[in-house]
Each structure stands twice: as structure tokens, then as C-alpha cells.
């Protein structure tokens, strides 16, 4: 349990790992997440499952270095064992044959959207995927998404790859010309999910987002992840992580996402001071 079987660096800041977790691989469904700890003194961080191999008993996680824990995670090697790896947590994506659906992934959200798109396609949907990032190097899992979707559109903010522009701009174009779209999934940075939900409000098409709240236990015990959806307090860990994006109180959600910002920065600084050769090590592997 928790052994890193395969590690790949997808670009400068994003890594992929296949983790040995046979029990979780047995029961996991698209849309669910896991919580991991690197070591006993570590924090518990949730990551949406990017892929799974039931027979091999493996779970794939994809993460971007955004702070101390993800940076330290990126230094682990194949064969290393995580201190804790639990799941599958949260509710699974509601997969039905809706007809035409759009799945949108931004940044590491591309990895999260992957099993959802795949399962939607298997269920008979025409799946249009839009994946986007700031620049070409940050586009990940292109091949996987191509396979998982009926149609794949790639965008970059700077136009270095695919279409130039934001995923929401492409989405608006699609919505203008194709009125058969029945449901939309958008996973990525909070601001991208917020803008997507605002974009689709005019059409009205149900837009599902997957929230990446700060959690501790991840099983409904602490309430750290609570968010207001449709005027009611919900727990992302047990009621989500997927919610109707048009009903999410985005201001509250985004405030709560950064409530440990200064501590997180301090933690990262201390780590870097103690590991000055980190960048060299990273270049080597």
C-alpha cells in the first residue's frame, strides 16, 4: 500500500505517479479523490484520481508543485512508500448517456477530467474535451485525453500550442454553434471553474465543477472543506467534490482556499532553506 510504482515528470512543475493501492483501485470511480501523507510529520492533502488500473491495483495521481508538500512529494522515487494513502473518497461522477457533453480541464485539472471523459464516452456520450494551460509545456496528458474524448480541443493562453485563448472562450464558441450540449464538467483552478460557471449561466446548461478545498480527514469529520452551495453549507469531502458550479458561492470558496497562505509560504521557505540542493536534484531525475 502506498508504494510508488511509476513516476513521470510531465513538465517542469507537474508530476505523475502510479501508486500501489489495490483496495482503492478495486472500488474507485471517476470523480473520486484520495488523501495522502508523505511522512508522519506531513499534512494530509487531497488529490483527485487521474486514472486507475483495477487489475494491477494501481491509482494514478497527477500533481503540480504549488507548495511544500507537493515539492517534497516530487522528490520521492519509484519504490518509495507514502506514509498514508486513503480512499476512494467523495462521491463519484454521475455518469449517464446525456448525448453531447463537454469536459474541460485546466492545468492539473486536465488529469482530473480524464477518467470522467473516458467513462462518459464509454456510456455513449459524444464527449468534447477542451484542455488548456498557460503555455505549451504545461499541457499534459494530451494522448490520454484524445483517446478518452470524441473530440479534443487544446488551448494555450499565449497561443504557443493549439488555439490561443482561454478554455472559456472556446466553450462560449461551442455553445453558440452547438445547441445539443447537455452537460458540462469543468475542473481546474478555482478562477477557471468560476468563469466557466458564469459563462454557461446564459445558456442554461448544468455545469459540474470539482472543488479542491483544504481538507484534514476527508471523511466528513472536520468540516474544513465546507462551502456554500445553493445557500446551504456542504462538505466537499462527503457531499462533493462535484457540485453545480452555478450554485457555488465562489467568493467564499476562494477566500477559504487561501486561508493558510502565509503559513503555507513559511512552510515552503523553511523547506527550501533546509533543502538548498533541491533544484539540482530535480534536474537529475
Amino acid at each position: 500500500m502506498g508504494k510508488i510504482i511509476q513516476k513521470d515528470r510531465l513538465n517542469e512543475v507537474i508530476y505523475s505517479m502510479w501508486i500501489e493501492a489495490p483496495q482503492i483501485a478495486q472500488s474507485v470511480q471517476p470523480g473520486q479523490f484520495i488523501i495522502l501523507m508523505i511522512k508522519e510529520k506531513g499534512e494530509r492533502i487531497p488529490l483527485t484520481v487521474a486514472d486507475f488500473a483495477r487489475k494491477k491495483g494501481l491509482i494514478r495521481i497527477v500533481f503540480q508543485i504549488v507548495g511544500k508538500t507537493t515539492e517534497e512529494l516530487s522528490t520521492l522515487k519509484e519504490g518509495d512508500r507514502l506514509y498514508s494513502f486513503i480512499g476512494p473518497l467523495g462521491k463519484k461522477t454521475e455518469i449517464n448517456n446525456y448525448g453531447t457533453v463537454v469536459t474541460i480541464g485546466g492545468g492539473t485539472g486536465i488529469a482530473c477530467i480524464h477518467p470522467i471523459a473516458r467513462e462518459l464516452k464509454v456510456a455513449g456520450n459524444r464527449v468534447i474535451s477542451i484542455i488548456g494551460a498557460r503555455t505549451k509545456d504545461l499541457i499534459i496528458m494530451e494522448e490520454e485525453l484524445k483517446k478518452a474524448s470524441t473530440e479534443l480541443i487544446i488551448t494555450t493562453d499565449d497561443g504557443s500550442y493549439g488555439r490561443k485563448g482561454l478554455v472559456t472562450e472556446i466553450l462560449r464558441e461551442l455553445l453558440e454553434k452547438d445547441n445539443s450540449i447537455k452537460k458540462i464538467w469543468a475542473i481546474g483552478p478555482a478562477i477557471m471553474m468560476k468563469v466557466t460557471s458564469e459563462t454557461t449561466r446564459d445558456y442554461p446548461i448544468e455545469t459540474i465543477v470539482s472543488l479542491n478545498s483544504i481538507m484534514v480527514d476527508g471523511t466528513g469529520m472536520c468540516g474544513s472543506c465546507r462551502v456554500t452551495v445553493g445557500g446551504k453549507t456542504k462538505f466537499v469531502c462527503t457531499d462533493g467534490p462535484e457540485f453545480d458550479g452555478q450554485l457555488v458561492d465562489w467568493e467564499e470558496f476562494m477566500n477559504r482556499l487561501v486561508r493558510y497562505k502565509s503559513q503555507e509560504q513559511k512552510s515552503w521557505e523553511v523547506y527550501r532553506e533546509n533543502n538548498p540542493d533541491f533544484n539540482c536534484k530535480r534536474r537529475i531525475d
Binding site: K41, G42, E43, K68, R259, Y260, S267
Partner: peptide
Amino acid sequence: AFPDYDTPIK
């Protein structure tokens, strides 16, 4: 014991 332990509290 933060930042010796990684979990923050405010």
C-alpha cells in the same frame, strides 16, 4: 509544532 509538522493552524 508547525512548521516542524506540516499542518498549519491559525
